[in-house]
């Protein structure tokens, strides 16, 4: 399979909201806002943002507002958490409707997630993870309020999660993982502190994620998976080292994980597709300069044109663009 099946992927994403008599649809309610963000981002970079009805999407986002806490939950009636809160803000930003949200309450909810050590919790129950540092920082930057937290402490916490291999873990002492490498690299970019990264070492570790079949894994001696196309590539793109892997082999791997009948992209060839692997496969193709996909900004995982219009950080590499 060497063609990117844009039309099928657009139809696949459109069909996701139609499965409401499927049990699986309801068992994933806790991911609904994330899923809409993933689908919408995929549609934007495929050039079909109109494939979802804007007013319906925004109405759903607003119905997930948790008025007790002042942030978004994953589904109507679910509790506020930074994960769906970032997805909501990203969706509103993509539609240029961020003014619809109660910015003041959002900023105070997000700022309250920072702990005295500089780490961030996902909600008031206190789980900490470097994912939440990134999520909160991005959300605050999109709201134009990075000043609401202690940036020095945020950097210090990420520094404590750095390992000798150049990678980052979820918490202090945790093993390096490409997902955490992405969030920490992007968070340090947002904080203008890329100097904290041991760049040659980290880029080497990331390049070693590529396996003989072209796919990327998340940690040493693990299997390949399409979603790592984004976690690994986004960090390599921020470090301007995308050429340190074999892009043709990775493009072939991502394309081979498409479902040629129903559309969508899976974790591996022959597996069930889902919107998560679809968007991250497309984002990987975008960074590798695939001509049929528009540019993604890997720092925020938002369409580049939108990030540019809002004056966000734009320093990253895309293959085939402004490259010698």
């Amino acid at each position: 399979m060497d063609a990117l099946l844009i039309d099928k992927h657009v139809k696949y994403i459109q069909s996701l909201g139609e499965n409401t008599d499927d049990l699986m649809y309801h068992l994933t309610a806790h991911l609904r806002l994330n899923a809409i963000y993933w689908g919408l981002t995929a549609l934007f970079i495929m050039g079909h943002p109109e494939a979802l009805v804007k007013e319906d999407v925004i109405a759903f986002v607003m119905s997930c507002w948790d008025d007790d806490e002042g942030a978004f939950g994953a589904h109507p009636g679910h509790d506020a958490h930074v994960l769906p809160t970032l997805s909501s803000i990203q969706i509103l930003v993509m539609y240029d409707e961020v003014e619809r949200a109660d910015k003041e309450r959002l900023v105070s909810y997000l700022a309250a997630r920072q702990n005295p050590s500089g780490s961030f919790s996902g909600d008031r129950w206190g789980e900490t993870d470097t994912r939440f540092s990134y999520i909160t920082l991005q959300a605050l930057e999109l709201l134009g309020r990075l000043d609401a937290i202690d940036k020095e402490k945020a950097v210090a916490h990420i520094r404590r999660c750095k390992n000798y291999d150049g990678g980052f873990g979820a918490t202090e002492g945790a093993e390096s993982h490409s997902g955490q490498v992405f969030v920490c690299t992007a968070a340090l970019t947002i904080l203008d502190r890329l100097d904290e990264i041991d760049q040659p070492n980290l880029a080497w570790w990331l390049a070693e994620r590529q396996l003989p079949n072209g796919g990327l894994n998340g940690r040493p001696e693990k299997l390949e998976d399409v979603c790592y196309s984004f976690w690994v590539l986004s960090a390599l793109s921020i470090l301007h080292k995308l050429k340190w892997i074999d892009s043709d082999a990775l493009i072939r791997f991502i394309l081979s994980a498409q479902d040629p009948d129903g559309g969508g992209i899976a974790d591996r060839p022959g597996d069930m597709v889902d919107v998560f692997h679809t968007v991250f496969g497309l984002c990987g193709l975008s960074l590798l300069g695939h001509p049929d996909v528009r540019e993604i900004n890997p720092i925020y995982c938002l369409p580049a044109e939108i990030a540019k219009k809002r004056g966000l950080h734009m320093n990253y590499q895309v293959l085939g663009k402004d490259e010698a």
């Binding site: 991911l31 998976d225 899976a266 974790d267 591996r268 597996d271 069930m272 889902d274």
Partner: peptide, 10 residues
Amino acid sequence: MSHGVKRARE
């Protein structure tokens, strides 16, 4: 998010 589930054409 599904991982390692084989695709079945229904």
